[in-house]
């Protein structure tokens, strides 16, 4: 059973993992790559546990999208600036 249904806009782009992520109740992150999304995959899995979520998105937003021509509306809403004191 899918743990939750999550809209793609509520997922965060993780540059290190090169994946969209969402918090998993185990403490790790559910993850799905752009390639997965282009293939119509809608399940984002957690590498640390058996849980998975269903990602709600429009596949057209990802087709023809590659890393050089990014679809602005799907880019992470916020680039996390880092402040180290």
């Amino acid at each position: 059973m899918s743990y939750d249904d999550v809209e793609i806009e509520d997922m965060e782009w993780n540059e290190e993992l090169k994946a969209y992520t969402y918090p998993c109740p185990c403490g790790d992150l559910f993850q799905i790559t752009k390639d997965d999304l282009r293939l119509g995959e809608e399940i984002a899995r957690c590498p640390s546990c058996s849980l998975y979520i269903t990602v709600i998105y429009n596949i057209e937003d990802f087709l023809g999208d590659n890393d050089k021509s990014k679809n602005k509306s799907l880019e992470p809403a916020k680039q996390q600036p880092i402040s180290v004191a």
């Binding site: 965060e12 916020k78 996390q80 600036p81 880092i82 402040s83 180290v84 004191a85």
Partner: peptide
């Protein structure tokens, strides 16, 4: 910590390590 949703309340979306 993570401020990307404004959850730190500082008027921005910055992370803070202190």
């Amino acid at each position: 910590g993570d401020g990307s949703f404004g959850q730190l309340g500082h008027g921005d979306y910055m992370a803070q390590s202190t």
